[in-house]
């Protein structure tokens, strides 16, 4: 029986392929894409005002509510603004170390630096945020360090959220920029120097344009991850992000349709972002 089956499969490579693909494609299409479809459908449902039960009638009232409620618009604006600030911060922080790894360090040091950047990326996300909470609290290490200079830390709030997000997603920016810079031939940089380009000029006119797709590739992660997070704002601030509203509506308020509608907002923003990123050639750097 087993031999006959393998014989049949050997003669029919398409059947082999079908057998291989049915599991993973079935899972991803039915369990995952199917769920995404349910999410979009659920965003059109509504909550019965009296019973609090979900009514399976279709309409755009959830989106209307999101659009017309000022606080929701503020929350979307805040989330996008912090996501943009985090992206810029990470690009600035990532560039020197990525350039050092790609063009200056010896192979041994380079390998060490790759590990030094990768390891924290994988270590527990929640614990990293929690550690910042301990450091930023009133009697924490940040204020202790700043006190001799007569300064005071940011405490919990938007600044803390920006700082922690920048910390969390930094490795996602370092790695693509490093890979992008490594692809720039040394001769191009030498040519710029030989033609009289000062370091700053070389950076602005040669390195930056060539590395831009890699920066945009990294920014996809820093931007998308910030949009979808609700743990960090909860731990180091009292302000709300898109994620917090979604989470609160699923759990406490039990308004699943509104939560589903709000969850489609980051998807829409990311689609626009990805379209722009593709125009800038970021997909070749992924």
């Amino acid at each position: 029986m087993g031999r006959r089956l393998t014989g049949f499969l050997w003669r029919h490579p398409r059947a082999q392929l079908g057998l291989l693909l049915s599991g993973p494609v079935g899972w991803l299409v039915i369990a995952y894409l199917g769920s995404l479809a349910v999410l979009f459908v659920a965003s059109l449902w509504q909550l019965d005002d009296f019973s609090g039960e979900i009514v399976h009638d279709y309409g755009l009232q959830n989106f209307q509510e999101l659009w017309e409620t000022p606080v929701y618009r503020t929350i979307v604006g805040r989330t996008v603004a912090i996501a943009a600030a985090v992206t810029v911060t990470d690009a600035i922080l990532a560039f020197p170390i990525a350039f050092y790894m790609a063009k200056v360090a010896t192979p041994r040091v380079r390998a060490l630096l790759v590990v030094a950047v990768l390891m924290p990326l994988w270590s527990s996300y929640l614990v990293k945020v929690y550690s910042w909470r301990i450091m930023l609290q009133e009697s924490g290490i940040v204020n202790w360090l700043l006190e001799p200079f007569g300064l005071h830390g940011p405490g919990f709030g938007n600044v803390a959220t920006w700082l922690v997000f920048s910390y969390l997603w930094l490795p996602f920016m370092v790695l693509p920029i490093y890979a992008g810079l490594e692809r720039i031939p040394d001769s191009v940089l030498d040519a710029s120097g030989d033609l009289g380009g000062k370091p700053w000029m070389t950076f602005r006119r040669v390195i930056l344009p060539l590395a831009l797709p890699a920066v945009v590739a990294g920014s996809i992660f820093t931007f998308s991850l910030t949009l979808g997070d609700y743990i960090t704002p909860q731990l180091v601030s009292s302000t709300q992000f898109i994620g917090n509203v979604v989470y609160a509506n699923v759990g406490i308020a039990n308004n699943l349709p509104l939560a589903a509608a709000f969850a489609t907002v980051p998807v829409a923003i990311m689609i626009v972002y990805l379209l722009i990123a593709r125009r800038l050639g970021a997909f070749e750097s992924l």
Binding site: L28, L33, G34, L39, L227, A263, P266, M270
Partner: peptide, 20 residues
């Protein structure tokens, strides 16, 4: 398709599975 569940923000994947 394989990369999509991690490329989309976590709340989207979470909400989608939760609704289903």
């Amino acid at each position: 398709l394989v990369i999509l569940p991690i490329a989309l923000p976590g709340i989207v994947t979470g909400m989608a599975l939760n609704s289903t």
